[in-house]
């Protein structure tokens, strides 16, 4: 197990293996998203209160979920990189940030589009769930700006890792904000002690979307880590071989 992990964490092996793994994320992910979109838009029944507007859930929830997953991944990888000095984990953290920022942006905008007709407002300043999600967007921006501002990769890794870890406090705040404070946002629907508060014909497309988007996110992350690894190891022999072997197609 350790041997396998160690091998995986070595950049050349990761580079080879990830190329083979990516299609296994993209293909099922795309199929799940296509199923989820069609089933969610046309086959799931409308909600008794929100009518067809509730269908925004099929893009909003996966985006919000991935925005938090990406941050968690970024903070954990940064922490691992800081403690065990594994090169690959800093590359993962650096790759997760822009993707996380995009999904946070998407969660905020789709939430806003959903909030307008249902709650009666595009945005509510001071709402804990909305505010903490917006703070996460700024954390992503701060992380990327910090990285961009420091030329030395090792120093950039360390400084940004500290920022990622400090900002991780925000993750439980986002998650529990709807319980700790009064928020316009409702509580959890899927993950509940008494089971999901949703019938299966609504739930299955949602689960398919969450899983599908997670797989596509995984593929995007691997793709970004590949570039990151290549760049970081640009002076090494194996990268030289990879680039030369690619011929003119690269």
């Amino acid at each position: 197990m350790w041997k396998f992990l160690h091998k995986l964490a070595s950049p050349p092996h990761f580079y080879d293996l990830s190329a083979k793994i990516i299609p296994w994320f993209v293909v099922p992910g795309t199929i799940l998203i296509i199923y989820g979109t069609i089933a969610g838009l046309f086959y799931a029944p409308p909600d008794y209160q929100q009518g067809d507007a509730f269908r925004i859930i099929y893009v909003h929830v996966p985006a919000a979920y991935l925005s938090m997953l990406a941050y968690t991944l970024m903070a954990v990888s940064a922490g691992i990189g800081l403690i065990w000095r594994i090169k690959l984990s800093h590359a993962v953290a650096a790759a997760a940030a822009p993707l996380g920022a995009w999904f946070t942006f998407l969660a905020l905008i789709t939430g806003s589009i959903w909030g307008r007709p249902m709650w009666g407002t595009w945005w509510e300043w001071g709402d804990p769930r909305l505010t903490s999600e917006l703070i996460m967007l700024f954390l992503y921006f701060g992380y990327m700006a910090l990285r961009a501002a420091i030329d030395d990769t090792t120093k950039a890794d360390k400084a940004s890792a500290v920022l990622a870890l400090v900002g991780a406090v925000n993750i439980p705040i986002i998650h529990f904000s709807v319980e700790w404070w009064s928020s316009l946002h409702q509580g959890a629907t899927i993950v509940r002690a008494d089971g999901p508060a949703m019938p299966t014909e609504m739930l299955f497309p949602l689960l398919a979307m969450i899983l599908g988007f997670s797989l596509v996110f995984g593929a995007l992350l691997l793709g970004r880590v590949r570039s990151e690894v290549l760049f970081r190891e640009r002076r090494s022999r194996w990268v030289k071989n990879v680039v030369l072997a690619s011929g003119e197609q690269g």
Binding site: W125, G126, F141, L146, A149, I150
Partner: peptide, 28 residues
């Protein structure tokens, strides 16, 4: 560059703090 980095990080923390305080104020 270091100054810019520290400045940006500082600005981020200030924005985050202001937003959080606002949230508490409005809500509580």
């Amino acid at each position: 560059q270091r100054m810019l980095a520290v400045g940006l990080a500082g600005a981020g923390i200030v924005i985050a703090a202001v937003l959080t305080l606002q949230a508490f104020k409005e809500n509580m």
